[in-house]
Design a protein around this nucleic acid. Structure first.
Lengths: 206, 206
DNA sequence: ACCGCCCTCCACCTTTCGGCTGATGGGGGC
DNA sequence: GCCCCCATCAGCCGAAAGGTGGAGGGCGGT
């Protein structure tokens, strides 16, 4: 019997996963949590399970699921299977780097979900088809990656800052900001800040 | 008995809503659809229901739910209750303008969902609390709204186009594009195209 | 008929941005 | 030890964008 902890801030999704799981004879939901804090408390309090089903974003908290995953893995908890609607490169990579065993999108058919749960419970990786495709295309084009500093700059560009403003915010000279931007333009194959933003968003950076 | 048609591309969400609905004695799901096309075919083929539960976005199609709502309302179909994860001004307004009877977020508790279904089935408006708050704040600040043309321009700015490129794409003179942008900056209280993009995204335009 | 809003366009000027060609120092790999 | 990448900075130039101050036509409301 596979014991599952279900953590999602959407009651409807929790009910859905529970309904799907209950049609399988070899798995059951032993606990539902609406927040990552509740999940972590439950685990810390001695809760045991074979797999944690976890959403990535909770309300306004964009990285709640990633942080919780890191905590669970660090504490030697059960394998984590991410179940979310977001399929950008950044989300997927962040989850995998945090130690997630699997990554599934909410639009996956139910048999894919149960298969992923069985795989995750056995400690095997369980990546949805869409997720696998994204990872592969990223591997085929590794030059898209920006350095930490470049991402810092690009993020501030996305908030509407001028080169001067960005320089001030990062305690740099304007020349350095321009230099970073020039590198960004080169890597993304564009020639303006707005085009860079567009390209970066399209590729899941930011 | 309230007959419900359930339209969502997420199998898990469909299972969840079905599970919630089946705990209520006075309502039932008479049909599940994974796409708006399937829903429209079913209705055109004589399918009858008291309320349509509809997601807004289907896969890559951003406005699938809005278009379907328009079609259903135009055809005199059953009231439409939007059930979605997206809570930006633009999404909500588009749905309401298309004729949706209600708008609920997927993170709503289950009793809110059943209450909204009953209201929608009776033809009464059914807006979730978060949605109501958004509409009120928008009413308090109506000056945030951009004209059609301004949104056209801003969208192309978001794709990284220069003023010249935008002018060419919209068959305008560069002066007109600059004029639209000047108005946009004024309305949003910014002074650069990237800052305008940032502000527009934050307020759910685009 | 008038007013207001939207869309279109023009000219002039200042600021900013992007392209180019550099330079320096630190860290990691071979 | 050497080389490459990253991060930092500089100056110069042309192009683009933003600010100002207009103008005219269309359309809807009062």
């Amino acid at each position: 019997m596979i014991d599952i902890v279900l953590t999602d801030d959407h009651p409807v999704v929790r009910a859905g996963v529970r309904a799907v799981v209950e049609t399988e004879p070899d798995m059951r939901v032993v606990r539902e949590c609406a927040t990552t804090a509740e999940l972590l408390r439950w685990v810390a309090g001695g809760g045991r399970a074979d797999v944690v089903l976890l959403d990535l974003r909770f309300g306004e908290a964009q990285r709640g699921g990633v942080d919780a995953t890191r905590d669970l893995v660090a504490a030697g908890g059960p394998p984590v299977l991410i179940l979310t609607t977001y399929d950008t490169d950044g989300d997927i990579l962040a989850a995998v780097e945090a130690g997630a065993t699997g990554y599934l999108l909410k639009d996956a058919p139910t048999d894919e979900l149960t298969a992923a749960i069985r795989a995750a419970a056995a400690g095997e990786p369980a990546l949805g088809p869409t997720v696998q495709r994204r990872l592969l295309t990223r591997l085929r084009r590794p030059d898209t990656s920006l350095t930490r500093r470049e991402i810092d700059v690009l993020r501030l560009v996305g908030e509407g800052g001028s080169n001067d403003a960005i320089a001030a915010r990062l305690s740099l000279s304007r020349a350095t900001v321009k230099s970073h931007l020039a590198h960004i333009y080169n890597k993304l194959g564009v020639q303006s800040r707005t085009a860079a933003l567009s390209a970066a968003r399209q590729r899941g950076i930011l």
